[in-house]
Structure formats: C-alpha cells, structure tokens
Lab assay of single mutants.
Amino acid sequence: KAKLLVLLYAFVATDADTICIGYHANNSTDTVDTILEKNVAVTHSVNLLEDSHNGKLCKLKGIAPLQLGKCNITGWLLGNPECDSLLPARSWSYIVETPNSENGACYPGDLIDYEELREQLSSVSSLERFEIFPKESSWPNHTFNGVTVSCSHRGKSSFYRNLLWLTKKGDSYPKLTNSYVNNKGKEVLVLWGVHHPSSSDEQQSLYSNGNAYVSVASSNYNRRFTPEIAARPKVRDQHGRMNYYWTLLEPGDTIIFEATGNLIAPWYAFALSRGFESGIITSNASMHECNTKCQTPQGAINSNLPFQNIHPVTIGECPKYVRSTKLRMVTGLRNIPSIQYRGLFGAIAGFIEGGWTGMIDGWYGYHHQNEQGSGYAADQKSTQNAINGITNKVNSVIEKMNTQFTAVGKEFNNLEKRMENLNKKVDDGFLDIWTYNAELLVLLENERTLDFHDLNVKNLYEKVKSQLKNNAKEIGNGCFEFYHKCDNECMESVRNGTYDYPKYSEESKLNR
C-alpha cells in the first residue's frame, strides 16, 4: 500500500503543469573576455578590431598615390635624371617610397634638414613645378651647363633637372645676384646647392675665386655659405661634395641669391598645395585598381571598426592602431551559463540550468507544459528593451572611439638618435595607453552587458513569482510547478501579467 502511494505521488508530481523562465541559446562559437572571465561563450557579439588588409596600394578616395619607385624624396625633388618619370607629377593622395629606393642625390652630399622637408611634404597633396630662374636668361655671365658622370643618364654625363651647376664663363666668375618674388599665391619650395671641391685647383678651375661665398636671403631665411675645400674619400667617382638646401617662400615674399662661386642654382621650384589627408609611407606593396579610405604600408583597410592592429602608420580615415589581438564586445547572452554566478555589478545569474535553442524569437521568455502540450514563448517587451539598450551602447562606444585619422611616422637624422629613441618611447607609451583603454573598455562593457542580461532574466522570474504567489511552488531551476490546472489561456495570463490569483487560489489551497 505504501509503495502504491509513492508511485501515485510521483505520477501526480510529474503530471503537474509547469512554467519556466529562460533565455535564448544557439550554436554560436563566439567568445568574449570580461573583467572576471576569459573566453566566455556568448550567443552574439561584435568585433571592434580590424585585423585584415588587402595587401595592395590603392587610390585614396579615388585619387591615385605618387609612387616614387626607384627614387626617394631627395632624388625626386632635386631632379635626379633617373627620376625623370616623376617630373610630370602634379597631385596625389599620398606618397609612396620603397624601403630600398636607390636614386637620391646622384652627386654625393646631403639634403640639409631632410627630415623636416619630409614632414612638410606629408601635408602636401599637389604642386606646380615651374621655372623659377629661366636657364637661358638668368645667368648671362656664367656657364650653366655643368654636368657630371655621377648623374649620368643613358650613358652620358648629366645633372639634376631642377638645378643648374653654374661655373665660370671664360676665365671669370663675376659676382651674381638674382631674385624671385613669389607671385603664386601659395608657398613655394625653393631648392639650391653649394659645391665643396676637393682641392684649391678644382676650386680655381671651376670658379676662378679662391674665397667664394654663397648667400641666400628671404624674410624668414638668411644664410651665408662658404665652400669647404678638403680631400675626401671618393664616392660615386667624386672627391667633391654638394650640400643641398631648401626653404619655403611665403606668398609675396622675395628670395635673393648672391654668389661669387660654388652656387648650384635653382632652375625649377614648386608651388605647394596642402592636403590634410596626405602623407608619406614606405612600402613594398604594389599598386592595383582599387579604392580605399584608409591606406597602410601593408595594404588598404576598408573598415568602419574603431581599432586596427595592422600597422601604426596610416593615411586617410583609419581606425586607431592598438596592439590588441582581440577586441570583441558582447551583444547577446551567455551561451554556457554559470550556476549560481554573481556578476561584478550585482546581477544574479545561473538559476537557469541552460539556455534554450528552441526559443528563437527572443532573448528571454517562457517554456510551459500542461495537458494541452508544451512550447516556448519569447517575452518580446523585455527582449526589445534589451536590444535597444545594447545597440545604443555599442553604437555609442564605437562612435566615441571611432575617431579616424592619419598617423604618419616621424623623421630623425643620424645625429638625432637620442631624440628618436625618446620619441619611440613616448609613442610606445601612448600606444600602451590606447591599447589598455580599449581593452579595459571592452572588458568592463562585456561584464556589464552579461550582468544586464542576467538581471533581465531574474526580473522576469520575479515578475512571475509575484503573480503566482503560493498558487505554485519554485522547483529550483527557474521553473514553477502549479498547484492547479493551468491551461493555455492561464499560461498566457502569466506571461502577459494578467494572471488571476484569486481564481485559482482555492484549487491551489486544496492541492498544497
């Protein structure tokens, strides 16, 4: 008799109507990190870190770059004969040098303040090359056809396309004075040089004057150069050297050249137009028929994500570079809930034993079982409120962090190594801060989002509990077992918050 009662009780308990509160689960393989956990499985997430590029040089917003090819900045601007293909260059979106560009200054020497000139050019998007001192009329008392084997072109001695090597005419090199007034309405880049012979005999042979000088002056520039005559090792078949100089001439300003020898005179100059998204990159990537809004030396990035880990040097509207390998923000729920887990921000989770793959029309909802059958029903209101809140948060985070910009490298010469090392340390410090901030932001927001979901499920549970009161009992896994019969209409009233407690209280009292 006792065995019969136990079996009867078990049958009745199993047959009781139930309603459970749960949440969506799926077959997603997404994982995120939080402050407290690593690799948390979630139903949905968004990636904030771009880690792919196309490996190509592309047009930037429809404008092609200027590819210097086998030449570098120095060779292009001075007019190395091997860089003749660059003479027609007028406009570009950015400038590309190759790491091993070999054609710079063909006659050995240095372009002074080269690093600063590169910085200036990094904001130039177009130029006009014009004859600042016409070759045939500007130097009537001097020979202007100086050439050298060091600047050979097609097997013949030649010289820079933008400079003139002035030497004596006959047996004399009379003092020369020439000036140019900038009437271009924009900055003009003027380049010139000073020749330093290897011996007094060479000085006399070329310029006749043993104590020659070169003077260059404008409103913002004033220097006097004296040739340094000295024996030097042979470089590119030359014992002599040429140093090259430049200045930016403001609109309306005048530049005056005065010399008694050794002047490498300007022939062509450049009127410059600035462009905020221009820059110089060093890259071996090849040019393709493609378009982008962000270019790196590795390749083009076409992404609206706020961060990238491809390269710190970028041109155009680019994500911020960070050292992170993963920045994924959760938008959905835990896919593998932890039992009795309390989140960092106070939300209680884990009283549900598992997510439901059968509930596909919402994030949170119900599963019921009664004599009429069983089924899932999503709670659309709480789901939609959660979707709206999380979507707004993700968009806000992306908008705040998605300050796209150009980031170019800084140039230092060989004598500025300590400054370069200090600059690298400062840049590394800023990069570490950006990386830390980005990672911390994602970790915190992921923790908040998961706790937010847990709290929403808990609130749904409490909503049902407050309606049923003692007409049902909690069975410990997020479910309630009714003390009365609850048909589909009754189940719907529980879900929509209109459950009639008094209607079922007498039946429940008897069954309790």
Rank of each mutant, 00 (worst) to 15 (best):
G75P: 02
S278P: 00
Y23G: 00
C151F: 08
S101A: 13
S126W: 01
K184T: 02
M242V: 03
R224I: 11
F276L: 13
D17F: 03
I256T: 09
F133I: 05
Y23W: 13
A105L: 15
N178K: 03
G109V: 08
P81C: 03
W165H: 03
S52L: 10
H53I: 11
Y180C: 01
R161T: 10
F257W: 13
K38T: 11
S52K: 12
P174A: 12
V188P: 01
Y180P: 11
S28M: 03
N54F: 15
G185R: 15
T226Q: 08
Y94K: 09
C83R: 12
R236G: 06
I280P: 02
S179K: 10
T167L: 15
V40D: 05
A41Y: 07
A64K: 14
I112K: 12
R236A: 05
C106A: 08
I229E: 02
G104K: 14
V12E: 15
L121I: 15
L127M: 13
L111A: 00
E131T: 05
S125Q: 11
I255R: 01
S273I: 12
A269I: 00
K38H: 10
N47L: 03
T143H: 06
G109W: 10
F144E: 15
L206E: 08
R232Y: 05
D110Q: 03
L49P: 08
I73Q: 06
E97F: 12
A269R: 00
L117M: 12
S273Y: 11
L7R: 10
W267A: 10
L249P: 01
I229V: 15
E82T: 09
E258L: 00
F133E: 05
S52I: 02
K168Q: 14
W165M: 11
G104L: 02
G170S: 15
P81T: 08
P88N: 12
K156W: 04
F11P: 04
C58E: 12
N39Y: 04
L57D: 01
Y114T: 13
I132T: 04
R90L: 12
S123Y: 13
Y94M: 04
T14A: 12
G69M: 11
A265I: 08
E102P: 14
C71V: 12
P227L: 10
W92R: 00
V149E: 06
A2D: 10
W92G: 06
D33C: 02
V124P: 00
S91P: 11
A217Q: 05
F133R: 02
E202S: 05
E228Y: 13
S150V: 07
Y213M: 14
R241N: 03
N220W: 13
A89K: 13
Y160P: 04
D17C: 07
W165I: 03
V12I: 14
Q238S: 05
E258G: 10
D237I: 05
Y244Q: 03
E258S: 15
N39M: 09
W267V: 12
K156P: 02
L86I: 15
D110I: 12
A2P: 03
C83M: 08
A269V: 02
I19V: 09
D237Q: 09
F257D: 00
Y114D: 03
R154C: 01
K38I: 02
S157M: 11
E102S: 12
G240S: 09
L263M: 12
V235F: 14
Y114E: 04
G22V: 06
K169T: 11
G79S: 05
L66D: 04
P174K: 14
I73W: 04
A269H: 02
M242S: 11
R274T: 08
A212L: 02
Y23S: 03
S123W: 01
S137H: 07
L66M: 11
C151H: 04
G170V: 06
S150T: 13
T260V: 13
Q203D: 02
N39S: 12
K3A: 14
E128R: 05
T98N: 01
F257P: 00
T143M: 06
S205F: 04
K3D: 01
G75Y: 04
P227K: 07
I281K: 05
Y160M: 03
T29H: 13
I229C: 12
A231E: 08
T226S: 10
S278G: 15
L49D: 15
N100E: 04
H153T: 15
F130H: 06
L248V: 15
P174Q: 01
D171I: 13
S28A: 14
E82F: 09
N80R: 03
R236K: 06
W192Y: 14
S200R: 10
K175G: 09
V235S: 13
N262V: 01
N141I: 08
L49K: 08
I63W: 01
R154Y: 15
E136N: 15
I132D: 06
I63V: 15
G185D: 14
R161I: 02
E115D: 02
T143F: 03
G261L: 01
S123P: 01
N54G: 10
K70S: 12
E187D: 15
F11G: 15
I132L: 15
N27L: 05
W165E: 05
E187S: 12
K70V: 00
K56G: 09
L127H: 10
V194L: 14
L248E: 01
S52Q: 13
A217L: 12
A231W: 13
R129K: 15
M242R: 03
G22T: 01
S126I: 04
F257R: 00
S157K: 14
S93M: 04
K59P: 00
H195G: 02
L263T: 00
L127N: 00
S158L: 03
V188D: 03
W192I: 00
T177L: 14
A265K: 05
R223F: 07
E228T: 14
V96Q: 07
Y268V: 04
R129S: 02
V12L: 04
Q67H: 02
R118I: 12
L57F: 10
S126A: 12
V181D: 10
P233L: 15
W267D: 00
A2E: 03
P108N: 02
F270L: 10
T74C: 13
A271Y: 09
S172A: 10
A89V: 10
I95D: 01
Y245P: 01
D113R: 02
N182F: 09
T34Y: 07
Q67M: 15
D17R: 11
N54I: 06
P108Y: 04
S52G: 14
E37N: 12
S126T: 08
E37R: 13
L5N: 01
N80Y: 02
I132M: 15
C58D: 05
T260R: 04
G193S: 06
A10D: 05
A105M: 03
K70R: 10
T247V: 13
L4W: 07
P251M: 04
G185V: 01
E97T: 09
W246N: 05
S219E: 00
G79Y: 06
L163G: 04
N103Y: 12
R224H: 10
K234T: 10
P251Q: 14
I35C: 12
R232H: 13
V235M: 13
S199T: 13
G62L: 02
A259I: 06
Y173D: 09
S199G: 15
A89I: 14
G210D: 14
F11Y: 05
S158V: 01
I132H: 05
V147G: 03
S172Y: 13
F144G: 08
S208K: 05
E119G: 03
S138N: 09
V147A: 11
D201L: 08
F270C: 04
P227H: 07
I112V: 01
I112R: 09
R161Q: 10
P81I: 04
D17E: 13
S93I: 04
E128G: 02
N178T: 14
T254P: 00
I35M: 15
Y173K: 03
L111N: 03
A217H: 14
D253Q: 15
K56S: 00
V216T: 08
G55I: 14
A230E: 00
N26P: 03
Y160S: 05
I19Y: 09
V214D: 07
Y207L: 02
L7Y: 09
G275W: 01
N27F: 05
P266R: 11
L77G: 06
L166M: 00
L248G: 05
I280A: 05
G252V: 00
N54E: 09
Q238T: 10
A265G: 05
Y9V: 08
L117I: 14
K175D: 08
N103G: 04
V42Y: 11
S278K: 01
P197S: 07
N178S: 15
K156Q: 07
S125V: 11
Q120M: 05
E102V: 13
Y245W: 08
P99G: 14
W165S: 09
S93R: 01
W246A: 02
V235T: 09
E202C: 09
L176E: 01
T98S: 12
R236Q: 09
H44L: 09
G193L: 01
S208A: 15
S157P: 14
D84R: 01
S123F: 09
